[in-house]
Design a protein around this nucleic acid. Structure first.
Lengths: 236, 236
DNA sequence: CATTTTTTTTCACACCCGTTAAAAAACAAA
DNA sequence: TTTGTTTTTTAACGGGTGTGAAAAAAAATG
């Protein structure tokens, strides 16, 4: 009975620790844990990443995590939520001023903004890539719906913002493939760059990604935005 | 001394077991192990897949694996080698008769052959996708060079076979992106199909992949194969 | 300063991992 | 059938996993 009440009290205070932010020291170490966790989850698939790795990465003992997060699952979800929120903030500036440019000039700028974001916040796309290959039992990856929501939101915004005239079906295919490809090239850069014999963080590889995305998507976007056969000659 | 000789003798006979095929019963169970292992490695990243899972999948006790494969690492490599060999065999028929078609007709056929192969042998691309997100320490994934070799070989053959007139740099970017995208759509179909609200194995999704790949790569390939601005009007 | 509360560490638990050795079973040869 | 060999199972090892309880340390409150 006594123990039971204590447990309930503990759970409540942990919930407060999780949600009621900025409460002196506890808030700081919560941030510290999240910082270490996001590095680990970006480097390993969910079931490979471990609580102990996170502790080692952040320089604290691993049971400390239990004091702030009730489970590995909840920690992962908190990390993903944080990363997606950062992306959402970035997304508000992603399309700024693009209307002033032609597609030929605007598309490279658009792509470069995404690349820049990634190299400042590499963990989101890496974590997505670490966990995109699940077969059967999708539910056994804790934050999976969060990833799905992120991707759907990203693609939907892109689709909405493109100055499309018609043919909605083609647009969704393009947006979908655009998203998939750039998340691959950025989030799994170490694999893709290896094949190209480049360094994943080199300007050379960044440039390769940018030019390749433009090469691939420019003509199709053009043909969708502009009516029919004018496509080839337009947009100086 | 006695023990030592026995050990050496054992190692030798295991090597024979591994290489000298078709020796009655042993050969059959080796196949049985590989069959179970490829299912497991297609479903989980290397460090999540376990020897015990393989045993459970195949209906035998897990130490039996040690009798045929000296380590998890070697088992994985054997699985990958087997899968790549199957693909190489398929690749010999992949380009057959494509010369007779225009790009507009040939490209969909080409893509469909790859899709058909995947749904008959789903493990290769799934296993690739399970392990493409490594950050740092690429060497800690046992068969990584095998994957790289597979991809380089696949892309190189494609590039060699395309009737390209000029602009080699653009071709390599296209081939590279083509490979990356189709391996993603097929090897991680459960994730991608989920976003599209389709079933990964449905004809609907297969069709979506085929049409999307054509939509994306047809115009660019056309503009590369044919000189310049004729592209838009050509190929009836 | 003394006491209480919050935060962190130490310890322990039950479970899964890859691998090895020994026992058991299945099979082959005599 | 008895012997010898190959194949499979059982048992055990050292180590890693997430999580919970208890002990210790640090901070806050009186």
């Amino acid at each position: 009975m006594n123990k039971n009440t204590a447990k309930v009290k503990d759970k409540l205070s942990q919930e407060k620790r999780t949600k009621q932010l900025k409460k002196g020291k506890g808030y700081e170490t919560r941030k510290k844990i999240l910082k270490a966790a996001r590095k680990i989850f970006a480097k390993h698939p969910y079931h490979v990443a471990s609580i102990r790795m996170v502790g080692k990465e952040g320089g604290f003992d691993h049971p400390l995590i239990s004091y702030y997060f009730p489970s590995k699952e909840k920690l992962f979800e908190a990390v993903v939520v944080e990363m997606v929120e950062e992306f959402d903030a970035f997304e508000k500036t992603l399309y700024e001023g693009l209307d002033d440019y032609s597609l030929k000039k605007g598309l490279p700028i658009f792509i470069n903004r995404i690349i820049d974001f990634h190299y400042e916040n590499p963990e989101l796309m890496r974590t997505v890539m670490q966990n995109t290959a699940h077969v059967e039992k999708l539910e056994d990856l804790p934050g999976f719906e969060l990833f799905i929501d992120f991707l759907i939101h990203f693609m939907h915004t892109m689709q909405k913002t493109l100055p499309i005239k018609f043919s909605l079906d083609e647009v969704s295919r393009l947006v979908y493939s655009f998203s998939a490809l750039i998340i691959n090239y950025l989030g799994a850069s170490s694999s893709y760059a290896t094949i190209l014999r480049m360094e994943p963080d080199s300007p050379e590889y960044r440039n390769w990604v940018q030019e390749t995305m433009v090469l691939l998507f420019f003509p199709r976007l053009l043909s969708i935005i502009l009516p029919d056969h004018q496509a080839a000659q337009q947009e100086p």
